[in-house]
Amino acid sequence: MVPLHGYLVVSALLFVIGVTGVLVRRNAIVILMCIELMLNAANLSFVAFSRELQNLSGQIFVFFVMVVAAAEVTVGLAIIVTLYRNWKTIHVDEIRMLKG
């Protein structure tokens, strides 16, 4: 049986990739994808701990995270569509009206 730490390392790596993506990519859709990566990293940890602690609550939690993520993606994509309609771009470095 693969130990808990194996899964945690995979989860950590996924999270690092997600954070890096959010910081380095300029395309809003890709940034949204990277956020999904981070959420999935958390999910993986949940499931791994669920098995380790022999408690199904972790999996139920993952279920809710998925619901929230689905809602978040739809709203996020709708915002991106609206952004594109107004600015003709979804590159976040070109959308910077709120600057001092």
Binding site: L23, V92, D93, R96, M97, L98, K99, G100
Partner: peptide, 8 residues
């Protein structure tokens, strides 16, 4: 200047 307007 700190407030750049760039979300990232």
């Amino acid at each position: 200047r700190i407030q750049t307007g760039l979300v990232q």
